Measured scan of single mutants.
Amino acid sequence: MGKSNSKLKPEVVEELTRKTYFTEKEVQQWYKGFIKDCPSGQLDAAGFQKIYKQFFPFGDPTKFATFVFNVFDENKDGRIEFSEFIQALSVTSRGTLDEKLRWAFKLYDLDNDGYITRNEMLDIVDAIYQMVGNTVELPEEENTPEKRVDRIFAMMDKNADGKLTLQEFQEGSKADPSIVQALSLYDGLV
């Protein structure tokens, strides 16, 4: 993909415009910024974590950033290329609610087996709590990752089998306004 070129080839721009919710001009602008920050044309896990640390200076986002990195890194080569970056950004910032929920499901399904187990969710929720640090005051019933996961599973795990399917996750998330709101945070920002 033209590693350190400051412009993408027209056919690449066209393809990314088809695969995302961005215009050709927006794709070019994002590429310019991506190459400025990642001259090699790729972003590794350490660089990704560094970006998260800028956004969450009062907590430790390392663990959460690693989980997000793994979802962005579609081809699992340990690096995020621009096409992976822009497609994930498109879903998280401008995707439909169902697209965002499928993306979030992939984030929580750490072993990619098609289910979110209690332990997988606990890993992610714990990482989120570490990331936000003491900057967020949580209600008593959610002031630990374990309590939050218990509440989520009580609401979403309809067949009580200890794991969530994509359908259970989507339906449960849509029924909880706070989850829908959290997924909409990026709307309109890009």
Score class of each variant (00 low, 15 high):
Gln87Trp: 13
Arg79Glu: 13
Thr96Trp: 12
Leu101Cys: 00
Thr17Met: 11
Tyr21Cys: 13
Ile80Tyr: 09
Lys3Gln: 13
Met156Val: 10
Lys25Cys: 08
Lys32Asn: 12
Asp123Glu: 11
Leu43Asp: 15
Gln49Asn: 03
Leu183Pro: 09
Glu120Thr: 06
Pro177Ser: 13
Thr117Pro: 02
Lys106Asn: 10
Tyr31Glu: 15
Pro145His: 04
Thr62Arg: 14
Glu81Ser: 15
Arg94Gly: 10
Leu138Arg: 06
Val125Gln: 06
Gln54Asp: 09
Ala160Trp: 06
Asn143Ala: 14
Ile51Glu: 02
Lys36Glu: 09
Lys19Leu: 10
Lys7His: 02
Tyr115Glu: 06
Ala154Glu: 01
Ala65Glu: 01
Arg18Cys: 13
Glu146Asn: 07
Val71Pro: 11
Asp109Tyr: 03
Lys100Ser: 15
Thr17Lys: 09
Leu89Ile: 11
Thr62Ala: 08
Pro145Phe: 08
Phe153His: 01
Arg102His: 15
Lys32Trp: 14
Glu84Pro: 04
Gln170Leu: 11
Val136Arg: 00
Leu89Val: 04
Phe85His: 10
Gly33Val: 10
Lys19Pro: 13
Phe153Gln: 06
Leu183Gln: 13
Pro61Ser: 10
Asn112Met: 01
Gln28Thr: 12
Pro10Ile: 14
Leu107Ser: 02
Met131Ser: 11
Asp126Ile: 06
Ala65Lys: 09
Thr165Asp: 13
Glu146Phe: 13
Trp30Glu: 00
Glu140Leu: 10
Ala160Phe: 04
Lys9Trp: 10
Ile35Asn: 07
Arg118Ser: 09
Met121Glu: 00
Ser93Leu: 02
Phe55Leu: 04
Asn159Lys: 14
Tyr115Arg: 02
Ala154Met: 03
Gly114Tyr: 11
Gly78Val: 12
Asn119His: 11
Gly172Glu: 12
Gln181Phe: 08
Tyr21Asp: 02
Val71Thr: 13
Lys106Cys: 03
Ala160Asp: 07
Ser83Arg: 03
Asn5Phe: 14
Ser178His: 10
Asn5Cys: 14
Glu24Gly: 10
Asn119Val: 00
Gly47Ile: 14
Ser6Gly: 01
Glu99Phe: 10
Met121Asn: 02
Glu120Phe: 01
Pro57Leu: 00
Val68Thr: 04
Tyr186Met: 00
Pro57Arg: 02
Phe56Thr: 01
Asn143Thr: 09
Asp150Ala: 04
Lys106Ile: 11
Lys147Pro: 09
Ala46Gly: 00
Ser83Met: 12
Ala182His: 14
Asp123Cys: 05
Pro177Asp: 10
Ala46Phe: 01
Pro57Tyr: 01
Ser4Leu: 01
Ile179Gly: 05
Gly41Glu: 12
Ala88Ser: 09
Glu146Arg: 13
Asp109Gly: 03
Asn70Ile: 07
Phe72Tyr: 03
Gly162Thr: 01
Glu74Gly: 13
Ile80Ala: 03
Phe56Ser: 03
Asn119Pro: 00
Thr144Trp: 06
Ser83Val: 14
Glu99Trp: 00
Val190Leu: 11
Asn5Val: 12
Ser184Leu: 02
Leu97Pro: 11
Asn159Cys: 00
Thr92Cys: 10
Lys53Thr: 08
Asp187Tyr: 13
Ile51Thr: 11
Ile35Ala: 07
Asp161Leu: 14
Glu26Asn: 09
Gly162Met: 03
Leu185His: 08
Thr96Lys: 15
Lys19Phe: 14
Ile35Gln: 00
Val132Asn: 05
Leu110Trp: 05
Pro61Cys: 10
Phe58Gly: 13
Phe67Ser: 09
Tyr21Trp: 11
Pro39Glu: 10
Val71Leu: 07
Ile124Phe: 01
Gly162Ile: 11
Ile80Gln: 13
Asn75Asp: 05
Thr62Cys: 06
Ala88Thr: 11
Asp113Ile: 02
Trp103Tyr: 15
Arg148Thr: 00
Gln170Cys: 00
Glu141Gly: 13
Ser40Leu: 00
Ala154Phe: 08
Gln29Ile: 02
Gly2Phe: 04
Asp123Ser: 05
Lys25Met: 15
Val12Glu: 01
Val27His: 07
Arg102Gln: 08
Asp44Ser: 03
Met131Glu: 14
Asp60Leu: 10
Tyr108Ala: 03
Gln130Met: 14
Gly41Val: 14
Glu84Met: 05
Met131Arg: 04
Pro139Ala: 06
Thr165Ser: 08
Gln49Thr: 00
Val132Phe: 14
Asp98His: 10
Ile116Tyr: 15
Lys147Tyr: 01
Leu166Pro: 11
Phe169Asp: 11
Gln54Met: 07
Gly95Ser: 15
Ala182Tyr: 06
Pro57Asp: 00
Val68Phe: 05
Glu140Tyr: 02
Leu189Ser: 10
Glu137Ser: 00
Asp37Asn: 08
Thr135Cys: 03
Asn75Ala: 07
Met121Gly: 02
Lys32Cys: 11
Val149Tyr: 02
Arg151Trp: 11
Lys100Asn: 11
Glu171Gln: 02
Asn143Met: 13
Ile51Lys: 08
Leu189Met: 10
Gly47Phe: 05
Met121Phe: 04
Lys50Glu: 14
Asp37Glu: 02
Leu8Cys: 09
Glu11Gly: 14
Ser40Ile: 13
Lys36Gly: 01
Lys158Arg: 11
Phe169Leu: 13
Gly33Leu: 04
Glu14Trp: 12
Val27Arg: 14
Glu140Asp: 00
Lys53Pro: 02
Lys32Met: 13
Glu14Gln: 12
Asp123Ala: 11
Phe56Ile: 00
Leu97Phe: 08
Phe85Ser: 12
Leu43Phe: 14
Thr66Trp: 08
Pro61Asn: 04
Phe169Ala: 03
Gln170Gly: 11
Asp126Gly: 03
Phe67Tyr: 13
Ile51Trp: 01
Glu140Phe: 06
Gly133Tyr: 07
Thr96Pro: 05
Leu185Arg: 05
Phe67Gly: 06
Ser4Arg: 01
Thr62Trp: 04
Pro57His: 00
Lys25His: 01
Lys53Arg: 14
Met155Arg: 12
Thr23Gln: 12
Lys36Met: 08
Ile35Met: 15
Leu138Tyr: 02
Phe22Ser: 14
Ser178Phe: 09
Thr92Ala: 08
Gln42Glu: 10
Ala46Tyr: 07
Leu8Ile: 05
Phe82Ala: 09
Glu140Trp: 13
Ile152Glu: 14
Ala160Met: 06
Tyr31Pro: 10
Phe56Ala: 00
Gln42Arg: 09
Ser83Leu: 07
Glu24Val: 15
Met155Glu: 03
Phe34Gly: 04
Gly33Asn: 13
Lys50Ser: 02
Gln28Val: 14
Asp176Met: 00
Gly33Ala: 11
Asp176Val: 09
Phe72Cys: 09
Gly172Ala: 00
Ala127His: 00
Pro139Trp: 15
Gln181Asn: 11
Phe85Val: 13
Phe82Trp: 03
Gly33Cys: 03
Pro145Met: 03
Phe72Ile: 02
Lys163Leu: 01
Gln130Ser: 15
Ser40Asp: 09
Glu24Leu: 13
Ala45Ile: 00
Phe69Ile: 05
Glu26Ile: 05
Phe34Tyr: 02
Lys7Glu: 06
Asp77Ser: 03
Ala154Tyr: 00
Glu11Phe: 00
Gly133Val: 05
Asp157Ser: 07
Pro177Lys: 12
Gly133Phe: 08
Asp37Gln: 01
Leu8His: 03
Asp113Ser: 03
Ile124Glu: 03
Gln28Ser: 09
Gly2Ala: 09
Gln130Asn: 05
Val190Asp: 07
Asp113Gly: 07
Pro139Leu: 08
Gln42Lys: 09
Asn5Met: 04
Glu24Lys: 12
Asp150His: 05
Lys32His: 12
Ala45Ser: 09
Asp44Glu: 13
Pro10Thr: 09
Ala154Thr: 05
Gln29Ala: 04
Val190Ala: 08
Phe105Leu: 09
Ile124Pro: 03
Asp150Trp: 06
Leu189Gly: 15
Gly188Gln: 10
Pro10Asn: 02
